[in-house]
Computed example of a mutant assay.
Amino acid sequence: MVKVFLVDDHSVFRSGARAELDGLVDIVGDAGTVAEAIAGINRTCPDVVLLDVHMPDGGGLAVLRGVDADTTFLALSVSDAAEDVISVIRAGARGYVTKSISGRELAEAIDQVNSGDAYFSPRLAGFVLDAFAGGEVAEESAAGPEHDPVVDALTRRELEVLRLLARGYTYREIGKELFISVKTVETHASNILRKTQQSNRHALTRWAHSRDLD
């Protein structure tokens, strides 16, 4: 059974989600704040984190960027705004569903992202396809030319892995340097390639050099 950690700042929603998912997944913990979420996820190492997007102290993005555990994130929110969807996907979430989803559908979404696939509520998939095909979300384009949205989308750990990859380190050497498993390095490398839209490690190295990320 998939191990799940639930993050939402409303205790009533967390209780309801637990009831809906009872017997379908193994909920190993929950949290209502960013700090509690980061600590709990790093402690329990769940397979999947159900992550609320809008929370105090930085919201879901702060959790995504603060977690070191090797886990998969599925955003779960009342919001279906394009900018919310794109921001958490760029930060590393594997899917995004709205809170109108049924318990059984949510369990299916959890299984799908845990298997390595992406999952989106039907009307949200188009936002992601447009963004990664070169489309822009208005709020993001306002950032100005001094920001590289692709670099900004990389988590702190992904940037660390990227720099070591660009310097020629092997996956095993990166794992020893960062005190993480080879499997975790491979996962980060795969996410980096996906976010930067590079086809292989050599192309990624050139990309990193061109942005002084090595």
Rank of each mutant, 00 (worst) to 15 (best):
V137Q: 06
I86F: 00
F179D: 14
S102M: 10
H54K: 11
G59D: 10
N200C: 14
S79R: 01
E20P: 08
R123C: 00
H54Q: 13
R14I: 13
E105C: 01
R123P: 12
R65V: 00
G168M: 00
D148P: 09
A153W: 03
A131I: 04
V150T: 15
L106G: 00
V137H: 02
T187C: 05
G95M: 09
A82Y: 00
H10T: 11
R201F: 11
Q197G: 02
G116C: 05
A203M: 14
D26F: 14
D22T: 13
I41C: 07
R65K: 13
P149E: 12
L6A: 15
L106Q: 05
F120W: 09
G134I: 03
D214N: 09
A131L: 09
N191L: 15
W207V: 00
S210I: 01
D214T: 12
V67A: 07
D117P: 01
E140R: 03
V34A: 04
A166D: 05
Q112D: 13
A189T: 14
D52Q: 01
D212P: 06
G40N: 03
A138L: 06
I101E: 01
C45D: 12
A82L: 02
V151F: 11
L61D: 03
L61N: 05
V48K: 00
D8W: 13
D57W: 08
F73V: 03
E160R: 12
E136T: 05
A35G: 10
G168N: 01
I41L: 11
E177T: 13
V53K: 03
E108Y: 14
T155F: 03
A35R: 12
A133G: 15
I27T: 06
L76F: 13
A203C: 12
L162Q: 05
